[in-house]
């Protein structure tokens, strides 16, 4: 059997990236930690944003991580699904708004 590209247990090893580039790795994790602290946005709100973005960037690790984070925070599945839709809507909107470019080009090239 061939090995899959994504192995769920690799998520546990995320911290190891610091071993091959200590300074940058450390800076990243410090920054990451600070971002998700309680701030002008609550940690709960940020968790939902992270979940939405995780889907948009289609990162299976982040999806696992922020689904669990949401459960830990008592975020309901309805809230999680709405967050995914918010991400999906922006993503499809971003595709569709390019339809205007297509229309512009079409018109320009047509007599």
């Amino acid at each position: 059997m061939s090995k899959p590209y994504y192995d769920p247990s690799d998520l546990r090893k995320f911290g190891e990236i610091t071993e091959w580039s200590e300074e940058l790795g450390k800076k990243f994790f410090d920054y990451y930690g600070s971002v998700f602290e309680e701030g002008a946005l609550s940690a709960r709100e940020k968790s939902l944003i992270a979940l939405a973005v995780a889907h948009v960037v289609k990162c299976p690790y982040c999806i696992d991580a922020y689904t669990k984070d949401g459960l830990e925070r008592g975020i309901t599945k309805e809230e999680m699904m709405e967050a995914v839709h918010a991400g999906a809507a922006i993503e499809s909107g971003a595709t569709l708004v390019h339809g205007v470019q297509m229309m512009n080009k079409y018109k320009k090239l047509s007599m």
Binding site: A43, K68, L71, E72, G74
Partner: peptide, 17 residues
């Protein structure tokens, strides 16, 4: 207590929810 394989997080936030 969590209804699944995850840990409880932030007792205070949970209390207020």
């Amino acid at each position: 207590n969590p209804s699944g394989a995850f840990l409880p997080k932030d007792q205070d936030a949970m209390e207020s929810d």
